[in-house]
C-alpha cells in the first residue's frame, strides 16, 4: 500500500519568535526553517511501515511556496520515495490544505495518510481531522503507537487522562504525537541520493479549489511580558514571600 505523509516547512522550534512591529504577522525572513517536528514523526512512522513490509511506497507532500522544496528534500533524505510540492504563495488555511491533500489522495490512492497533530507555527490542530472528514475516513489522532493488524490499525492515543486505544480500519488518517517514535537523522549519502529523487511541482490553483481564507487576520501582537521576578535565598524566604503575596 502507498502511504502519504504531509510535511510543512515551519520556523524552527529553537528560533525566538518576533512579532512584526506593524502587527501584520510574525517575522519569518532570515530565520532558520525546518520540517514541522510532528511531521518528522509522521514520516518516520511511514518509513517504518515500509521497512516492516506494510507500505510499498512513501510519498511526501507539502503545500507551500518554492522554498518548501527544502523540506521535501529533507523528507526524501530521510527515505521518502518521492515528493509532491503543491505550490501556493499564500499558505492556505487548514481547511484549504485538507482539500488539496484530499485531491492528492484521490490521485494517488494511498491507504494511510499521516500528518502531524499540529504545526508548531499556527498550532491549529485541524488538518488531519479535516482530511479524514473530507474523505470520510477513520481518524486516529494524537497517536503514540500504531500496530497494523490486517486492514486495521490498533492505535494508541494520548488523551488528557492517560492513554486510549481505538481500532480504525483502512483507509485512515493518522495524526502523530511526538512520542510515536524517534525520527531518524539522514546520513550524508542519503542526502546526496535525495538530490536525485523526483519532486513533482503542481500549482495549487490547478485543483480548482477555492482557497480564499475564511478567517481574516486582524492583527498579530506579542503577548504581555511578565513582571520581572526576584531570586530568593532559600525555602524559608520563598515560603515567606508566598505568604506575603497571599498565595499560601
Amino acid at each position: 500500500m502507498k502511504v502519504l505523509v504531509a510535511v510543512k516547512r515551519v520556523v524552527d522550534y529553537n528560533v525566538r519568535i518576533r512579532v512584526k512591529s506593524d502587527g501584520s504577522g510574525v517575522d519569518t525572513d532570515n530565520v532558520v526553517m525546518s520540517m514541522n517536528p510532528f511531521d518528522e514523526n509522521g514520516l518516520e512512522e511511514a518509513l517504518r511501515m515500509k521497512q516492516a513490509g506494510i507500505a510499498t511506497e512513501v510519498i511526501a507532500v507539502s503545500v507551500g511556496d518554492e522554498k518548501s522544496q527544502d523540506t521535501l528534500r529533507s523528507a526524501l533524505a530521510m527515505g521518502a520515495d518521492r515528493a509532491i510540492l503543491i505550490k501556493a504563495d499564500q499558505t492556505p488555511e487548514p481547511l484549504g490544505i485538507a482539500k488539496l491533500l484530499a485531491k492528492v489522495v484521490e490521485q494517488e490512492g494511498p491507504q494511510v495518510a499521516i500528518l502531524g497533530k499540529q504545526a508548531i507555527d499556527d498550532d491549529s490542530n485541524q488538518t488531519g481531522q479535516m482530511l479524514a472528514a473530507l474523505l470520510d475516513w477513520s481518524q486516529g489522532t494524537f497517536a503514540s503507537n500504531a500496530e497494523f493488524d490486517g486492514d486495521a490499525i490498533n492505535l494508541t492515543r494520548e488523551t488528557d487522562t492517560g492513554l486510549e486505544t481505538i481500532k480504525i480500519s483502512l483507509p485512515a488518517v493518522i495524526t502523530t504525537d511526538l512520542r510515536l517514535n524517534d525520527p531518524r537523522l539522514p546520513k550524508l549519502p542519503d542526502i546526496m541520493k535525495a538530490k536525485k529523487k523526483p519532486i513533482d511541482i503542481v500549482d495549487a490553483s490547478s485543483y480548482g479549489i477555492d482557497l480564499s481564507p475564511r478567517l481574516e487576520v486582524v492583527s498579530v501582537a506579542a503577548p504581555a511580558e511578565r513582571e520581572p521576578g526576584i531570586i530568593v535565598a532559600d525555602a524559608a524566604e520563598l515560603v515567606n514571600k508566598l505568604k506575603e503575596a497571599g498565595a499560601l
Binding site: 510574525v26 507555527d121 499556527d122 498550532d123 481574516e216 486582524v218 498579530v220 501582537a221 503577548p223
Partner: peptide
C-alpha cells in the same frame, strides 16, 4: 472576532471569521 495564541503562545493572533 477572536484572539488565539500561535507559535506556542509567542504571538497572539486576532481573527475575524466570515
Amino acid at each position: 472576532t477572536f484572539v488565539r495564541p500561535i507559535y506556542a503562545g509567542n504571538a497572539l493572533m486576532t481573527v475575524k471569521s466570515s
